[in-house]
């Protein structure tokens, strides 16, 4: 459920780093909590993300949830497929359901992100609380 090689934010986004670029999506847990996703509001290419700040929303038919940037940086690509097929996030959250690619401004910010096993622990804690 939480693939190796990715870094995870406590706000349930994942980050896959290649050189100075990071691909961002939401985790299996996040899409499962939301249920069937009906709409994704994406930022524009060129938008600046700030770590921890909201950069878009994802909707199921009766809930709205915000995405939070796992790292800061400029958006260099967004997944246009999601406009017509938002269900890709449910079907393949780590693959075709990716959301955007960001040019990582400050690699040091990544240190706060969690490893797969730490994130899994975090999710367990969340489930106990909620």
């Amino acid at each position: 459920m939480y693939p190796e090689g990715l870094k995870y934010a406590k706000t349930h986004e994942w980050l896959k780093v290649e050189d100075n670029e990071g691909k961002v999506g939401i985790t299996y847990y996040a899409q499962d909590r939301l249920g069937d996703i009906t709409f994704v509001e994406l930022p524009q290419v060129g938008a600046e993300l700030t770590k921890g700040k909201s950069f878009g929303t994802v909707e199921s038919f009766k809930a709205v949830s915000e995405f939070y940037a796992p790292v800061s940086g400029k958006v260099i690509q967004v997944n246009k497929e999601l406009r017509d097929n938002p269900e890709l996030i449910n079907q393949d959250p780590y693959g075709q359901g990716w959301i955007l690619v960001v040019e990582i401004a400050s690699p040091a910010e990544m240190e706060e992100l969690l490893s797969p096993s730490d994130y899994e622990q975090w999710v367990k804690q969340q489930e106990e609380v909620g």
Binding site: D36, T38, F39, E59, S60, F61, K62, P86, E87
Partner: peptide, 12 residues
């Protein structure tokens, strides 16, 4: 007259 309706499809 109808059963539970597909609200996800309606919103997508």
């Amino acid at each position: 007259s109808v059963g539970r309706l597909d609200e996800v499809a309606a919103a997508r």
